[in-house]
Structure formats: C-alpha cells, structure tokens
C-alpha cells in the first residue's frame, strides 16, 4: 500500500502546498524548522484537519478529495499516530492504554516485551518516565495494526540518551512493519539516521535545498539561522 497526498491549506502566516508519496515498508522523514507546517500536514493525513484543496489516496482508497467532496473520518482511516505527548489516557494503566484499541489484546504482552516495559504494565502514565510513556504510546499505535504509521516528533521531549536509544529501536523495528511510516522531526541527524526518503518542508512547501543550507550556513546568518542552530548541535552527538 502506498500513501499519496497532495495538500493545500491556507494558514495564518503561509500556505501549505506539498505533494509526496510513501510506499509500504518505507520511512519518509518530513524535516524542517519548527512552525513550518509539518504537524499540520500530518494532521491532514490523519483526518484531524481538512485541507482546503487536494487529495489523499491510500492504496485504492480515497481518504480525501476536495473536488469530489470526500473526507474519510480519522476513525475509519485505521492508522497509528504517535505525538510528543498526550497519547496515553491518564485514567488507565499502561497495559490498558496499549490495549485500548488493540485488534488482539493478547499481542500487547509481546509488544511490551519488545519495548521493554513489561514490568510497568500496571503503572499509570504519570508514574513512569517520559521515555516509558512514549514506548507505551508506540505499543498503543502498533496494537491497532495500523495501515499507516504517523510519528510526529515522538521522541523530541526526551533527553538525548533516551532519544538515541528509542531511535535505534525504531530503526530495527522498521523492517518488521509492513505499513508506510511518516516521521516528523526538526533534527537533521535523526532524519539522516532513520529515513529512506527525506521531505524537507519549509513554510509549508517542499524545499530540497534546506538541509544543505542549514548545515553549511554559519549561525547568525540569514533568517534560517535560528532554526539551524539546533540541527548543527545535533550533528555532534
């Protein structure tokens, strides 16, 4: 299955206007400065936001088509969506959170073993660390047997060591997943490490030269300097 999208949406400071596609077993990393429309794009794929114009096609299903007035609700797209935080329901323990929408509740134990959080299954989300919460959020998304996996800076709120560990685990997990994966980050190092394909997005548009400019430009130079500082640092790790 391949996800193919062409999206236009008017935002307050700029317009989103991108086209891309991502095939099964492939990870596309969407990268760009913060506030550049990456999250809006991924929310349109999830069906949480409606584009002004465009199409989203998944395999032979049409999820969105502005000319034919088709909009499939997020409930029916059957995808996994992990964001920085707030995936887990505070009133449920980790096991119940992961099993919340599981196709087969018995699989959750296996996922917990894989993500090394089996010993925390009875804990509530506020009783575990941020990294453990994100591991559980990955289990929650995967237990649903998603047809498409959307990861919106899932490890950005974590410390460097935890982030690198999870990044490596995700890379080794990638081979066993059969769905397309779209990963959002503003970290160039992360993008180069994980990606099969890279889609740089700046102010809502595809900008293939962005990474090169960001790495080579001196800090303090030009308008992208602020966004450039962090990726430059991350190359050190």
């Amino acid at each position: 299955m391949t996800i193919a999208a062409s999206l236009k949406k008017r935002l307050k400071y700029f317009d989103v206007d991108v086209s891309f596609s991502c095939a099964s077993k492939s990870m596309m990393v969407m990268i760009g400065p913060s506030g550049g429309g990456k999250t809006t794009i991924i929310r349109m794929l999830a069906g949480l936001e409606v584009p002004d114009e465009g199409r989203v096609i998944f395999g032979d299903e049409v999820w969105f088509d502005s000319t034919r007035r088709i909009h499939v609700t997020p409930q029916k797209r059957r995808l996994g969506y992990v964001f920085q935080d707030y995936n887990l329901f505070p009133h449920l323990n980790l096991l119940d959170n992961a099993a919340f929408a599981a196709v087969d509740k018995k699989e959750v134990d296996g996922l917990f073993d894989l993500f090394k959080i089996s010993h925390l299954r009875k804990r509530k989300p506020h009783m575990v660390s941020g990294g453990e919460r994100q591991r559980c959020a990955m289990c929650q998304a995967l237990a649903r047997h998603p047809r498409l996996l959307l990861l919106d800076e899932p490890f950005s709120a974590l410390d460097v060591i935890t982030r690198r560990g999870l990044r490596e685990e995700l890379k080794s997990l990638k081979g066993s997943l059969s769905c397309p994966i779209i990963y959002v980050t503003h970290d160039i190092n992360e993008a180069l490490f994980l990606a099969d394909e890279i889609l740089p997005v700046v102010e809502g548009k595809n900008d293939d030269g962005w990474m090169q400019r960001t790495i080579t430009r001196e800090p303090g130079e030009g308008t992208t300097a602020k966004g450039a500082r962090e990726p430059r640092l991350s190359l050190v790790y």
Binding site: A46, L48, T73, P74, Q75, K76, R77, R78, L79, G80, Y81, F83, D85, Y86, N87, F89, P90, F100, A101, Q140, R144
Partner: peptide, 15 residues
C-alpha cells in the same frame, strides 16, 4: 481534558 487526548481517541477508532 487536553484536546489531543480526544483526537487520539478518534484516531484509535472511537466515535
């Protein structure tokens, strides 16, 4: 209740 929690429930298939 954070809106993102509700959105996550929708993505997970809940009406």
């Amino acid at each position: 209740i954070d809106r993102r929690l509700l959105e996550n429930a929708y993505v997970l298939g809940l009406s």
